[in-house]
């Protein structure tokens, strides 16, 4: 298993909870307790989380003596990202249409729906990208010694 696969396993099992749990807590606090700065806390958390993959790579790929990342890894990452972007886009379209469909043209939805749509979409993106990375690597099962 190379570093990109390790990163994908990390994203698959820890990436989604790392997005859903803190953001869900922020949304709940904002909704239930009316804490006005909760959206800012969530935004700051998401911004800091976006640096996590880069931090991971800083430590994971620090061994300069042996090649740990090459053109095949780059291609796999690119394809996994493209596929997950496709699903994220599809999800975004559905998330926009469904409230309109259910509530009607003059209906309304609570504003809390918007951050929920955002964090579910981000989680979906991270999950699909990690899953596709592992599938494109063949889950490492065909890597001989």
């Amino acid at each position: 298993m190379n570093k990109a696969q390790e990163e994908a396993w990390f994203g698959l099992f820890l990436g989604v909870p790392l997005i859903l749990i803190p953001c869900g807590v922020s949304i709940f606090i904002s909704y239930d307790r009316g804490v006005s700065f909760a959206p800012l806390v969530m935004l700051a958390y998401l911004a800091s989380m976006s640096f996590l993959p880069w931090l991971f790579r800083l430590f994971a790929y620090r061994n300069k003596k042996q090649v740990t990342y090459d053109e095949r890894d780059r291609l796999i990452e690119k394809r996994a990202a493209l596929i997950s972007y496709f699903f994220f886009w599809l999800y975004s379209v559905i998330a926009c249409i469904i409230p309109w469909w259910f509530t009607g043209s003059k209906g309304s939805v609570p504003v809390i729906t918007l951050p929920i749509i955002l964090i579910v979409g981000l989680s979906l993106f991270v999950f699909i990208r990690s899953l596709m990375t592992l599938i494109l690597y063949g889950r490492g099962s065909r890597d001989g010694k």
Binding site: V67, D70, R72
Partner: peptide
Amino acid sequence: GVTRQTILA
């Protein structure tokens, strides 16, 4: 200058 997995693939 690539990984062993790439040569294998």
